[in-house]
């Protein structure tokens, strides 16, 4: 029996339970290592061993985050465990979000967490401060390298007593945490050195990289809207009455996806706003004022748009962090593309 005990989290697919049809699976446990866990176990040699694998469906985790986290918390508390591992999740958005959700639980329980992820996976941006993520490629093709990097980081974590060092040295993706230290030279001298390099067009390294402000090239126009599948998305918090997903009034941590089949008009009996940042009276009286379904149905009828997509997406833009908003946008965008949508109307309050 190895000294260090590892609990490993996998989704339904890598946990070998099933495909998308099992995506609704609530968290469950299996003895020992499963799937990629077997390779990880090997890479961990005799120093650490996976004692338990927790498996959950990606949809279940994302749609019932709190319940999933609660269950995983319970599992972890019952276990004699030194470190939690997850994935790698590559660029699978929902899997990455689930691994991140597990990181959050581990962090709360004071357990170290190691996973592998593709840097553009929204799970990384959203949960990076809760654990250590090594960088993988965007597909399962990078599994072998990912597993070996995860094992190395686990070794390093324990060898350094929980201070593995800087991201580059230790081989993990930056966690977005700023730490103070004393540099060799005073600030003013460093500033002048940097200025000279900048003037001479030599390479220099900023001490505080600005948060990124990437722009996106405008997509070409839709040629024939009369044939196109159009979707609507809102940050104005329009949800079915009762707010079934409990989207927060501010600092939203999630978005909702709701059926529009048979809906020709948003009425105050069936819909309302969950947004806490503006006076809800008008939106509650007539939710079309934020999400114009009545007019879109007419335009659909008139042939100005081909078809209105059968779902709409909603979240609350009030105080919601950039990283959350980004993650929502990415997840929604991917789903819409998959569903064959060709154009999107996004409304904001």
């Amino acid at each position: 029996m190895a000294e260090l005990k590892v609990v490993h989290y996998l989704n339904q697919f890598f946990g070998q339970v099933g495909d998308e049809d099992e995506a609704d699976l609530p968290p469950q446990r299996k003895e020992g290592a499963v799937g990629p866990g077997k390779a990880l176990n090997q890479a961990l040699e005799d120093k650490a061993e996976i004692v338990r694998t927790i498996i959950a469906g990606d949809d279940y985790f994302n749609e019932n985050k709190e319940a999933a986290q609660e269950k995983i918390r319970e599992f972890l508390q019952q276990e004699d465990v030194d470190i939690v591992a997850a994935g790698p999740a590559f660029n699978a958005g929902r899997y990455g979000m689930a691994c991140g959700g597990v990181a959050e639980v581990a962090d709360e329980l004071g357990l170290p967490f190691v996973s592998g992820i593709y840097p553009e996976n929204p799970g990384y941006e959203m949960y990076k401060q809760y654990g250590y993520f090594i960088e993988t490629g965007d597909s399962v093709g990078s599994m072998r390298q990912g597993i070996s990097d995860m094992a190395d980081l686990i070794f390093r974590y324990f060898e350094t007593d929980g201070s593995p060092g800087k991201p580059k040295e230790a081989g993990y993706l930056p966690r977005g945490i700023r730490k103070n230290f004393f540099r060799e030279e005073r600030g003013a001298r460093r500033a002048v050195d940097m200025l000279v390099k900048k003037i001479n067009e030599e390479e220099f390294e900023t001490e505080y990289p600005m948060p990124s402000f990437d722009r996106v090239e405008p997509k070409p126009a839709v040629k024939d809207l009369g044939e196109a599948l159009v979707a609507v998305v809102t940050t104005g918090g329009i949800v079915p009455k009762g707010n079934p997903d409990k989207i927060e009034a501010s600092s939203a941590s999630k978005f909702g996806k709701y059926k529009l089949n048979g809906v020709t008009d948003l009425t105050s009996e069936e819909f309302e706003t969950a947004h806490g940042g503006y006076d809800p009276t008008y939106a509650n009286q007539d939710p079309d004022r934020v999400l114009p379904i009545d007019v879109l149905r007419e335009l659909e009828e008139e042939g100005k748009i081909g078809k209105l997509h059968e779902y709409y997406y909603a979240t609350v833009g009030n105080g919601t962090s950039v990283s959350n908003a980004k993650a929502f946008g990415k997840a929604i965008g991917e789903e819409l593309v998959k569903d064959g949508v060709q154009a999107v109307i996004l409304t904001s309050t």
């Binding site: 930056p174 003013a188 001490e207």
Partner: peptide, 22 residues
């Protein structure tokens, strides 16, 4: 917080304190 210490994060660059990303 270091905020309360005179001159600790002085922005004229008189001292060597700095920070970096982890």
């Amino acid at each position: 917080e270091l905020q309360a210490i005179t001159g600790s994060t002085d922005q004229l660059g008189y001292t060597r304190l700095s920070s970096e990303g982890y």
